[in-house]
Design a protein around this nucleic acid. Structure first.
Lengths: 173, 173
DNA sequence: GTCTATAAGACGATAGAC
DNA sequence: GTCTATCGTCTTATAGAC
């Protein structure tokens, strides 16, 4: 059962470097020193590896979208969720081939729709056009700011407070 | 010579939807109703299609990184460059397989390094840790905020002013 | 659980006719 | 400038032995 984890770790790393479509099963098993058939004992398809990788973070973002939290708490939750699943968000959140596979994985809402829901929650009901723009800006800070800031490492407490404050300033004119 | 443009248009669209590695030459020619051999009359390889697509926007970001503009002007230039090459940035800027190919295209600085240079310019010389965090936040607004805001369309003048103001607020505590 | 071997097809790219 | 046909390789996935 530890082999499963090792496969997922290597897959995440390679998907981040070469994308899902650009990574072959042989690439993964080659780095692990095992045969392709051995991998298929643990996973029934390539798509299932991706699915196991994204299921948890995707569900977390989905809960956020449905949380009805006020803007300040919602932004904090976006920062924490992004930091918490940093490696997966980095590896797969920006890979079109992975996103396409996830969409076809019989899932109702894709990542794009979840993002849009969160931005709408930040903007509030019947937002003015400037307010809508500021919601996009704040979400960009909370998600991509956190990502690029903590590239590779962990999010320190004082950095968390600072990025959250920046997101709030972007939201409130 | 118009055929070349039609190929690039379809390639950009498919790379955005399925990534570079996830798009085959047959996918592109299939949508254009031409044979694979016909495409290879206009481009000598798949990588050359990608290269033709990204050369101009990549050079534009590189000029920005070397511009030594003060923060306010630099952020405005990032917003305008991102909006100006919206479709390409969207299609390829977030695709790991494309980024890997571009890196191997005998180019000195990759996209990651260019981004880091711009963030460093925003932070200024010998920045404090909070200032460094704010530089990441401001760049996230200027790039990803602009991207998600104008998804598919064009950046309106008043939206441009609003996102720029949000980026400046993120930068200055 | 892991191996070797292989099926069945998609892939990038080319040859040569028109 | 575009076609059909094909080369050699890589791909996902499986069969069957250990």
């Amino acid at each position: 059962m530890d082999t499963r984890r090792r496969i997922l770790d290597v897959a995440r790393e390679l998907f981040a470097a070469r994308s899902y479509a650009g990574t072959s099963i042989a690439d993964i098993t080659g780095r692990l020193g095992m045969s392709k058939a051995a991998l298929y004992y643990h996973f029934s398809s390539k798509a299932e590896i991706l699915s196991a990788l994204v299921a948890e973070p995707l569900a977390a973002y989905e809960r956020l979208a449905d949380s009805h939290l006020p803007p300040a708490e919602l932004l904090a939750a976006v920062v924490d969720t992004t930091a918490g699943y940093l490696d997966v968000v980095d590896a797969i959140g920006s890979d079109p081939s992975a996103r396409a596979v996830i969409r076809d994985l019989s899932r109702q809402r894709g990542a794009d729709e979840i993002n849009a829901t969160i931005v709408a929650a930040l903007a509030g009901p019947a937002p003015s056009e400037p307010r809508r723009v500021r919601a996009h800006a704040a979400y960009a800070v909370a998600k991509h700011g956190t990502l690029s800031l903590t590239a590779g490492g962990k999010l320190a407490t004082h950095d968390r407070a600072e990025i959250l404050a920046a997101a709030m300033r972007a939201l409130d004119a």
